[in-house]
Computed example of a mutant assay.
Amino acid sequence: MESIAGVLSLTDAQNKLLQEYRQFTETEIAPFANEWDRAGKLPRSVLTGMAEAGYLGTLIPVEYGGSAFSLVAFGLLNEAIGVGCSSVRSVLTVHSMVCQAITRWGSAAQRERWLPRLAGGQWVGAFALSEPDAGSDAAQIAATARPDAEHYVLDGTKKWITYGQAADVFLVFAGNEGRLSAFVVERDTPGLTVEPLDDMFGTRAAMLAELHFDRCRIPRAAMLGRPGFGLVAVAGAALDIGRYSVAWGSVGLAQACLESSLRYARQRRQFGVPVFDHQLIQRLITNMATTVSAARLLCLQAGELKEAGAPASVAAVWMAKYFASTGAFQVAADTVQIQGANGCHPAGSAQRLLRDAKVMEIIEGSTQIQQAMIAQLIPHAA
């Protein structure tokens, strides 16, 4: 396995974990990423392999079959998967968001029903918040859940749902008598239909879908937490994990760009010397390596603060996601620039990395939303 550049920010133990996760990625994911991107889908076998390695149960307690990773270890896993394929990492993100929500807010019966299946990979979860007219402004959600005896009747549409084409269980948010609530909806529930959203610009293999709920009857026991608990508590905490996962995944994507650029620049010769010998190329690679290391440090800080339960972890996660995602896009753009026409051709990975990097600036809080939020989270000067 090629040595990993820019890991001076990790302890020996953390670097060992990252190497372990990278070995899995380089065997089971990276060689197939371009193929999956062109096909626009992931084989279920890759998720089965991740489950067997304990990677789908990272945020699930051991008593429910999970791996109970530390948050830093979970972050390093997202980095490693992000090096290989952002589509796979995106599925890991939303699956982990569902696992985290059920672990934190679910009743004992709900945990017993769903967590072992999610940890073991029998089921994969998807996060269903966004709608055709409600993205960043989640308060505008139009889906409704109407009480009816021992059930809720769910109506509405969810859009841009990562892995919606194949997920087995969905964490769905809907208005419940004027209060937003969260519900766990299993795929085979009558009234739920799934419409694939193909040919996306980036993370093409993440299998996005639009979900339609038409008088979809779900048991009252499917509600997660209390009525009105959906947006601030359930969605808020899940989205925090999602931002954290995407931040680390962006580090991995940028790391992949750095390694690709180094390989190409050392092998490609122009004007009688390797491209790497040209100072302007060295400048680009220097900026890449610095961005990767700085983003990783911000992610480590966020993970350590989250582990400690520190209030500052909220701002730290926002900052990590903001810096890592915007940095990854610039690094990916420079990777294509270094590789020229080769970087634009689908036979290589550079163009896929650039497309995926743009998605990182949009999901789990767009760059502009992050800029507004971070400014508000900065402590006032004395």
Rank of each mutant, 00 (worst) to 15 (best):
A233S: 08
A233D: 08
V234L: 05
V234R: 02
A235D: 00
A235T: 00
G236C: 01
A238W: 01
A238P: 03
A238D: 05
L239G: 07
L239D: 03
D240N: 12
D240E: 13
D240L: 14
I241M: 15
R243D: 08
R243Q: 15
R243K: 15
R243L: 13
R243F: 15
Y244C: 02
Y244A: 00
Y244M: 07
S245M: 12
S245H: 09
S245R: 10
S245G: 15
V246W: 10
V246Q: 07
A247N: 12
A247E: 11
W248E: 04
W248R: 04
W248M: 05
W248Y: 14
S250C: 11
S250N: 09
G252M: 00
G252Q: 01
L253A: 04
L253K: 03
L253Y: 06
A254M: 15
Q255F: 09
Q255L: 15
A256L: 02
A256V: 06
C257V: 05
L258G: 01
E259G: 04
E259W: 01
E259F: 02
E259S: 07
S261W: 06
S261V: 08
L262K: 00
R263W: 06
R263C: 08
Y264L: 12
Y264C: 03
Y264K: 03
Y264H: 13
A265M: 06
A265H: 08
R266H: 11
R268M: 03
R268V: 00
R268H: 07
R268D: 00
R269Y: 04
Q270H: 07
G272M: 03
V273F: 01
V273I: 10
V273K: 06
P274V: 07
P274S: 04
F276T: 05
F276G: 00
D277I: 01
D277K: 10
H278P: 05
H278K: 10
H278M: 13
Q279P: 07
Q279V: 14
L280A: 11
L280V: 12
L280P: 03
L280D: 12
R283G: 15
L284G: 08
L284N: 12
L284R: 12
L284Y: 15
I285S: 01
I285G: 01
I285L: 06
I285H: 01
T286G: 14
T286M: 10
T286W: 09
N287H: 13
N287E: 14
M288N: 07
M288Q: 12
A289T: 09
A289V: 05
T290C: 10
T290H: 15
T290P: 01
T291Y: 04
T291D: 02
V292F: 06
V292C: 06
S293P: 01
S293V: 13
S293T: 14
A294G: 09
A294W: 10
A295M: 10
A295H: 08
A295C: 14
R296Q: 15
L297R: 13
L297Q: 14
L297N: 11
C299N: 08
C299S: 15
C299L: 15
L300G: 06
L300W: 08
L300Y: 07
L300A: 10
Q301I: 12
Q301S: 14
E304R: 14
E304M: 13
L305K: 03
L305C: 02
A308C: 09
A308Q: 15
G309S: 07
G309W: 09
G309K: 04
A310T: 10
A312D: 09
A312M: 05
S313P: 00
S313G: 00
S313E: 01
